[in-house]
Design a protein around this nucleic acid. Structure first.
Lengths: 262, 262
DNA sequence: CGCAGATTTGACATTCTTCAAGCCCAGTGG
DNA sequence: CCACTGGGCTTGAAGAATGTCAAATCTGCG
């Protein structure tokens, strides 16, 4: 049985935000696009990006229709706002941020995407992407042409439900974030952010208590609606109150309950 | 040809936020649920809540499967957070707010829904609704059981695309709101809110310049991430700067460009 | 007409941002 | 090996934006 955690067994750093390239990364250094070795039936993150219950024949169909992957180096974009929408992407390895830009140059990070999470659904609405997706570290994604996905949805009830759930889940996630931005103090936002990240990492088999942040204070601040200095101050305060320990990007949550009660 | 505007012809108030009940409202005072007189083929808001291109036979199918409506009085809820999810709703008449509640009692308005807009898609994710939907005025909705909608999606490609677009549109809308909450000043938020509302009303055949707000300052503030006093001050400021004229809930946008440039 | 809730406005408190300075740390080149 | 350097991070002080509290209107409705 494959699971995300196994890829960390002998990883240099087991507290990264997302799946770190293992020492054998060469075998994953996929050319763009590449066909072999990327079968869904084999994929460590399938459980999160595809329906849970698939028959062998359905799995075989996935393997035969979704087959190309792409690597994106740190800082490069997977897609840009206004690009024509053709595919959605499942993060196989690494992590991304999504960014929307205002005409006056202000930009806001609207989300962080870890391995197993889906990316690009914003483009369905108008056939163009509404944000930039940028890799926070060297990453790879599975390319799922949306037309193919629509076909799968038609033929597989479980797939249609899954796609609907993913989109709805994105809606729910965002309304949670609106709540955060609309009603919480800076300290509460940072606490909620850490707990959320912790939860998602735990789901993927990582320690919920210790991890490395892959984004800068500025990116975090943009996501949370505050300045990088404020983020930094809040980390200091959480440290002083003995709720978390921080060494730069390295995070250790000491008191989960305390953090939740802020 | 039906269109939303005709329902306003002899309406008491042609500047309401949403479609006001016309004098002949009695014929719309639908019992719950009611079957006749609510055919999609006849519906003034079909253009916004259903795919644009439907064959006569597809329309006939809609009429035969989506048939019940429900009235919701001002202040009453269409559904509550944690209700089991069964249906989505299209607003036929009136307007709603959606509200998420934090455990500590803080609540946040996450959206306002006008006639023609869809409501309830948040429930797909976990089979339970994630927010309350509350009528801002006496309203009526069309009830669309989600299982029926899934069936329609399977059989009608245009319906599947439409549902995907609606959900994606919701995602995009929310990320725009995150941008607003994350990067804009109070004044900019209020301006953006008014312009957004104006645009949506215009789409429905109303004046873009003059309308009545259906929500309180507090609800607006909750939506925009600020206190009601701040909303009020911003209205005063916009008035002083001769960008809008306000008389309580009555709004007249004087200078669209100025408003957009704030 | 008179109340209850909604709105406006003022004065003051708090939170967050801005600006500025210095620190830390990893990668680089001597 | 080590100083150097630049980006990211932390911290302080001052200022701006927004929240809080309180009081005075206003408005719709019974």
């Amino acid at each position: 049985m494959f699971n995300a955690a196994q890829y960390l067994d002998d990883s240099v750093d087991d507290t990264t935000l997302a799946l770190a390239p293992p020492p054998s990364a060469a075998s994953f250094a996929l050319s763009v696009p590449k066909r072999s070795g990327n079968a869904c039936s084999n994929c460590p993150v399938r459980a999160t990006c595809m329906p849970e219950t698939l028959t062998p024949s359905e799995l075989a169909r996935l393997d035969s229709t979704i087959c190309s992957t792409r690597t994106v180096r740190r800082g490069e974009s997977l897609y840009r706002a206004n690009d024509t929408f053709q595919s959605v992407y499942a993060v196989r390895l690494g992590s991304f941020k999504t960014v929307v830009m205002h005409r006056d140059g202000r930009e806001q990070v609207t989300g962080f995407n870890l391995a197993g999470e889906m990316l690009g659904l914003d483009g369905v609405h108008t056939d163009r992407h509404s944000c930039d997706a940028i890799a926070l570290e060297d990453s790879s994604v599975c390319i799922i042409p949306f037309s193919v996905l629509e076909g799968l949805c038609h033929d597989m009830k479980s797939m249609q439900q899954h796609v609907h759930r993913m989109m709805s889940g994105e809606i729910v996630r965002e309304s949670g974030l609106m709540m955060l931005l609309g009603t919480m103090t800076a300290e509460q936002r940072v606490a909620a952010f850490l707990l959320n990240l912790s939860q998602r990492l735990k789901t993927r088999g990582y320690s919920a208590a210790e991890f490395n942040l892959r984004m800068t204070r500025e990116e975090m601040g943009s996501y949370l609606g505050m300045k990088l200095e404020t983020v930094s101050r809040m980390f200091s305060k959480l440290h002083k109150d003995e709720l978390v320990e921080t060494h730069g990007k390295q995070i250790r949550i000491v008191d989960f309950e305390g953090l939740a009660l802020i």
